[in-house]
Every structure is written in C-alpha cells, then in structure tokens.
Design a binder for these strands. Sequence first.
DNA 1: ACAAATTGTTAAAAATAAATTACATTAAAT
DNA 2: ATTTAATGTAATTTATTTTTAACAATTTGT
Lengths: 74, 74
Amino acid sequence: MKRSGQLHNKLNVLRAEKKWTQQDLANKVGVSRQTIASIEANRYNPSLILAFEIAAAFDKEIQEVFQYKLIEEE
Amino acid sequence: MKRSGQLHNKLNVLRAEKKWTQQDLANKVGVSRQTIASIEANRYNPSLILAFEIAAAFDKEIQEVFQYKLIEEE
DNA sequence: ACAAATTGTTAAAAATAAATTACATTAAAT
DNA sequence: ATTTAATGTAATTTATTTTTAACAATTTGT
C-alpha cells in the first residue's frame, strides 16, 4: 500500500512515566508483548482500535501517543 | 483478536459536508473506493496510518472522525 | 422515463498486522 | 558475579485489512 507519511510514537516515554513494562502494557490492551515491541520500534502500523486502546491505557488522546508526519511531495 | 470496544465513524457526514464521493475520498488518501465503503460500513478496522490520512483529508483530529466506545465489563 | 453516477456488497487474491515460539542481549536485583 | 527480569529481534503461522473486479441497487441529472 502507498505510504505518504511516517508514524512515530511515545510509547517508551509513556511506559517509563508509568513504570510499565512492555508486558504490562500488552496485558492491559490484550495483545502480545512482541506486538507492543514492534509498534514501539515502528516495525508496523497498528490497527486504529489497538491505537485507541493503547491511548486509553495511558489516559491520553491518540495524537498524544502517536504522531503522523506527512512526507513532502514536490 | 480480542475486541473490547466498538468503532464508529462520521465519514458519510463529513463527506456530505464536503460533497465528496467515496471515490473522491479514496483518491485523496490513496486507497480503493471499496476500502472507504467498508470502513464507512464498519466492516473493518482501518490501520492507524489510514485513519490519520482520512482525518487529515478532512482537516480534523482522528477522534472527530472516529469514535471508539469501550464495552462495559461486569 | 431514461441515462449516468454513486453506493452496497461480495468474492478472491494480495499485503500486512498480530500471535506464537524462540533465543540473544541488556538491565536490574541479590 | 550470578541470577532474574526486561527488551530486541527473527521466523513461522494465523488473522485481518486492502486491492481488484464485478454486479445489483439506489440516487441524481436530463
């Protein structure tokens, strides 16, 4: 699929603030630890529902957790 | 995968405001018309990147376009 | 009423996310 | 220094999204 931008996230920072391990967060949102690790490392693009659940776990809005930067087109 | 909530969206309303067809929106975000139709009908859960691109097309935040309601657990 | 555009929906294939298993590396605790 | 917990990452499998193609149904324009 076409990708016209890049996804970044603040999962490691937010986890550190709460002192949660990847496993802790994985348990809270009901996915595997590797899924959290992969998202954290930007290895893939989570589903919107998972993004909502992660944001809710931190009591934040999605854009406080995930940032999407459009790539400039010339 | 576990689903502990429901996703809703306002795509049809936002499209109507802009007078965009499904095809128009599909072109703007670079997916097929059927992808837009399927998201609009809640047949599936888009990727976070696609959700960001759709929101950007409407110049809105994600949560103005998509709403995620957690299901009550007892 | 007719034609054209738009939408609803489905099926099959392709692409990508997510689960699972596994193991190596790093950090923390004793 | 040794053990234990936490993280990085890779391979394989499974689940889901997305594409493509197709056709029916509905809406819009003339």
